[in-house]
Design a protein around this nucleic acid. Structure first.
Length: 340
DNA sequence: AATCCGGGGAG
DNA sequence: CTCCCAGGATT
């Protein structure tokens, strides 16, 4: 088939392609969820060096795991990775199950990842429908419907399954994704002259490239104002852990409040927490963007005379701060200011 | 079906 | 700025 031939001549050499062992494919596919290849590569290499097999992942220290994931985002991915590894140890004797349904049942593995692992590592004829495939297929077949709809995804999945060469499903799935990453790229700028499907592409023929794939517009981000309190006492800094379940769940951060406080209000806030404030120094403002939230932060360096006990707080050394897993990058701005 | 969940790079 | 990335879980 033309597409697979194109792939064999144009595939990028990627760390997880050298050896499609189930464990490597699994880890790479989880990391690649909503994350670009170039971003993943260094994380994947570090991860494999530290946790080369299911067993080591199942028993890894949580802090260590977070540190390996720090900066990748979507942190439930790595929590689910460890959970799944423990299930694989208990229920499957340490080997990833070699069927779609069992893979799908593992935490963090959805329809795409199950299909990818099943086809790439086990040679099973299962589709793996990601953003690339939705774009490539909807363009080739001139599908103008909203690719965000489940019904449209199912239709595309069916088309992929029909055209899949059953002798090399993994290579075929990767070919579709690679075409989407290198040639049939987003934002109306595909390199159609380099496409093995140029002559059979309905969108190319009809000039629909700018309209397909179609998606609903995303709703705008909500903004949240916050005051970040960097509370220091001698060499110690106060940090707290974010609640489980929400944004940056379980990660460490500086104490903070809703809304922007003035200098005087910081004094008052210190009093309520039984802090003996020595000085309050404004650290300026910082902004951080998430996919659906926008943090507008103002920071204060609050010097207190004693590291008194405050419920939920821990007093860390500046060195601890560097080793703490995954301090939210939104707060890196203030972290770097006190480390100087 | 909608919403939440991160961060970064390209245009 | 906007869009999108080898998506999944939850409601």
């Amino acid at each position: 088939m033309q597409l697979v031939a194109w792939y064999k001549n144009n595939a990028r050499r990627l760390p997880w392609r050298d050896d499609p062992a189930p464990y490597k494919t699994w880890i790479s596919e989880i990391m690649l969820q909503q994350t670009k290849v170039d971003t993943v590569i260094p994380y994947f290499k570090r991860f494999m060096d530290e946790l080369p097999d299911v067993d080591s992942l199942a028993s890894v220290d949580q802090d260590r795991l977070f540190k390996l994931w720090e900066g990748l985002g979507y942190y439930t991915r790595c929590k689910n990775l460890k959970k799944a590894a423990q299930i694989v140890m208990q229920r499957y004797g340490g080997e990833l199950p070699d069927d779609y349904a069992s893979l799908l049942s593992l935490p963090g593995i959805g329809p795409y990842t199950a299909g990818a692992v099943a086809s790439i590592s086990f040679g099973l004829p299962t589709p793996a429908i990601d953003g690339n495939v939705l774009r490539v297929i909807s363009r080739r077949y001139g599908i103008k419907e909203n690719i965000g709809k489940i019904a449209v995804k199912r239709k595309i999945e069916s088309l992929v399954l029909d055209m899949m060469p059953k002798n090399e499903p993994g290579t075929f799935n990767q070919s579709l994704m690679e075409l989407g990453a290198q040639v049939c790229i987003p934002n109306g700028k595909p390199l159609c002259q380099a496409c093995p499907w140029e002559s059979s592409c309905i969108s190319y023929k009809n000039g629909w490239i700018d309209e397909i794939p179609y998606k609903d517009k995303k709703k705008p981000r909500r903004t949240e104002a916050k005051t970040i309190l960097v509370v220091v006492s001698n060499n110690l800094v106060a940090i707290q852990q974010r609640i489980e379940g929400g944004l940056l769940s379980g990660m460490w951060e500086f104490p903070n409040t809703e809304g922007k406080m003035e200098d005087g209000q910081v004094q008052e806030w210190g009093g309520k927490n039984s802090l003996h404030t020595v000085s309050v120094v404004p650290m300026g403002e910082a902004k951080h963007l998430f996919s659906h939230v926008e943090w507008h932060m103002i920071g204060y360096l609050v010097e207190v005379n004693d590291p008194v006990h405050v419920p939920g707080w821990q007093w860390a050394t500046l060195e601890d701060l560097e080793h703490r897993f995954a301090l939210p990058s939104a707060l890196d701005h203030y972290k770097s200011m006190i480390l100087k």
